[in-house]
């Protein structure tokens, strides 16, 4: 009887762990997809050649990045993203924004690959 109880207990703990693991991977995906969407908006603004809109979109991106739990994406990685996004939000001209965006995009692609998310880096808009 005791043994059976133990087995049930172990089993339920395993189940629980699995459930929370799935839960957290779902969280990563949803948070990262909003980050990707936000990145897309910067990309669109740059394609349109609007410095102000790109800066605005970058600020929105920063807010989303700062809302991500470090347990999903660690501090060093978030800071790597924030640095380029911050540069876009404060750059005085399109050229410098594009330069920072290049690096940001490279990091976003790495992210998307690692988490198996869709991302389109094509230059079709440019």
């Amino acid at each position: 009887m005791k043994k059976a109880l133990l087995i049930v207990l172990v089993f339920s703990i395993l189940l629980l762990q699995k459930a929370t693991a799935q839960d957290s991977s779902f969280k990563v995906k949803s948070q990262l997809s909003s980050l990707i969407n936000s990145w897309q908006l910067i990309k669109d603004a740059l394609a349109e050649g609007s410095v102000d809109e790109a800066a605005f979109a970058a600020s929105a991106y920063i807010k989303i990045a700062n809302g991500i739990d470090y347990k999903l994406l660690s501090e060093g990685n978030i800071h790597a993203l924030l640095k380029d996004a911050g540069a876009i939000s404060e750059a005085p001209d399109l050229k410098r924004q594009q330069k920072s965006f290049e690096q940001l995009s490279a990091n976003m692609v790495t992210l998307a690959k690692a988490f198996k998310l869709e991302i389109s880096v094509g230059d079709k808009n440019q």
């Binding site: 990685n77 800071h79 790597a80 993203l81 924030l82 640095k83 380029d84 690096q103 790495t110 992210l111």
Partner: peptide, 8 residues
């Protein structure tokens, strides 16, 4: 400094 490349 704030780093530059993500490492996952």
């Amino acid at each position: 400094e704030v780093g530059h490349k993500v490492n996952l």
